[in-house]
Simulated assay, not measured.
Amino acid sequence: MTEKTLVLIKPDAVERNLIGRILVEYERNDLKVLDMKLMKASIDLAEKHYAEHNGKPFFNRLVTYLTRSPIVALVLEGENAISRVRALNGTTDPETSKDNTIRALYGLSLSENTVHASDSKESAGRERSIWFAKNYS
């Protein structure tokens, strides 16, 4: 089933000039870029993105990290895009990610793990509406 998902290339990856390398991984795995923008996330956008973590001890750290320098927001489309992107990204902790996943290759730590991807259709819809004005239903 063709799906659309949201990916964020996070500040640590943008700072290290990894945008192109990460995009190649998605495209060579038959995922199509429908929209993309380089931007500096506002505190408001970061708080909306991480709303499910509001009140947790690490919430402010997440917001600070996402807003420290530019990110790249992407809408990707493809067969089973949500699960495929999450598999390509690897686990949240680069130390435990499978070899050759994006996080294993480029992630620095659990907190600086290079990329974010939506974890469900519901999250993908909610997150796309935060980062992009256009409706990708």
Rank of each mutant, 00 (worst) to 15 (best):
V33Y: 09
A124N: 07
S120C: 04
L38C: 02
R28F: 08
K121E: 15
K4V: 09
T67G: 05
K48V: 00
L45M: 13
N100M: 14
N89V: 06
I71F: 08
L45D: 06
I82Q: 01
G107M: 01
K48Y: 08
E79Q: 13
S97N: 03
R126H: 14
L8P: 00
D119C: 04
L108F: 01
K37A: 10
D99P: 07
F59T: 06
P57I: 14
L110W: 07
P57D: 09
N54K: 12
T101C: 03
S118Q: 05
T114C: 12
N29M: 03
T91C: 06
R126F: 13
I82S: 09
K56D: 13
K10I: 13
V33F: 09
D119E: 14
K32E: 11
V14H: 14
T114S: 14
K10E: 08
A124Q: 08
S123Q: 12
S120V: 05
S118M: 01
R21M: 10
V85C: 11
T101W: 01
V85P: 00
Y106T: 02
A51V: 10
I43K: 15
A81W: 08
E127W: 09
R103C: 00
D119A: 06
K98Q: 09
L110C: 04
T67I: 08
N54A: 12
G55M: 05
S123T: 14
S42R: 05
T101N: 01
L105P: 01
L88M: 13
S97D: 03
E77S: 15
V72G: 11
